[in-house]
């Protein structure tokens, strides 16, 4: 299964953020997305998710054209936003049955590493890292074939980062994953290929040397 995004152009006021950007994401791969602050990474993810409208953007899944507004009801793309998205006045144990009726999926989350330690606590009592880990665990259990992650490694401790990497490596067997984060070493470690978002377009990068050459990292 393949997600193809073309002709993504968007401007905020006089500032063009994305200019004819194109991206391909296949099931079975992790694609890294880099870019300086304000370069349009999050905007691109939101356009693919369907919450920011880019009228000219063309989205295709296996060659079939999809309108942006169709993607959310169709459950094709899941998205981890930068900010926390789970309700906080509820325990993990109470929240998960509201999200999944499939006992197998519930078990996969409840028996995932660390979850038993915080499942009985309300989400507002969890650390930022625990909430983000739980958020990613939930998204990985959805049936959506594509997963977009905005800063999954930010504010995460090293142990939890390793758990997330393992989880994503496992999930990529059935999903295509696009992730954006400034922790470039972590992204490069798990990504099969990567892009740098620069001047509104996507430039393929092979590794740290390319990121330096293109000015994302200092020389």
């Amino acid at each position: 299964m393949e997600l193809q995004v073309d002709q993504v152009t968007i401007a905020f006021g006089a500032r063009t953020v994305l200019q004819d950007a194109s991206l391909q994401l296949r099931r079975g791969e992790i694609v890294g997305l880099f870019g300086r602050n304000g370069s349009g990474k999050s905007t691109l993810l939101k356009i693919i998710f369907g919450t920011v409208r880019a009228p000219a953007a063309q989205l295709r899944i296996d060659g079939e054209r999809w309108a942006q507004r169709e993607l959310i009801p169709a459950g094709k793309v899941a998205y981890l936003p930068q900010q926390e998205y789970l309700p906080t006045g509820i325990t993990t144990r109470a929240l998960l049955p509201l999200l999944f009726s499939d006992g197998e999926k519930l078990d996969r989350i409840f028996y995932a590493p660390l979850v038993e330690h915080f499942a009985h606590r309300k989400l507002h009592d969890l650390s930022v890292g625990e909430r983000k880990y739980l958020g990613i665990l939930i998204l990985c259990q959805l049936d959506h074939p594509f997963l977009l992650l905005d800063e999954p490694f930010t504010m995460i401790d090293p142990l939890c980062k390793d758990l997330i990497k393992t989880l994503l490596a496992e999930s990529k067997k059935v999903k295509g994953i696009l992730l954006s984060d400034h922790y470039y070493d972590d992204v490069l470690q798990i990504a099969d290929r990567s892009y740098l978002l620069q001047d509104g377009g996507l430039v393929p990068v092979a590794g740290r040397a390319d990121l330096k050459r293109l000015g994302y990292l200092g020389r």
Binding site: T51, Y85, L139
Partner: peptide
């Protein structure tokens, strides 16, 4: 921010 949860579902 919780709308993202509903959108994902």
């Amino acid at each position: 921010e919780q709308y993202s949860l509903y959108f994902n579902l």
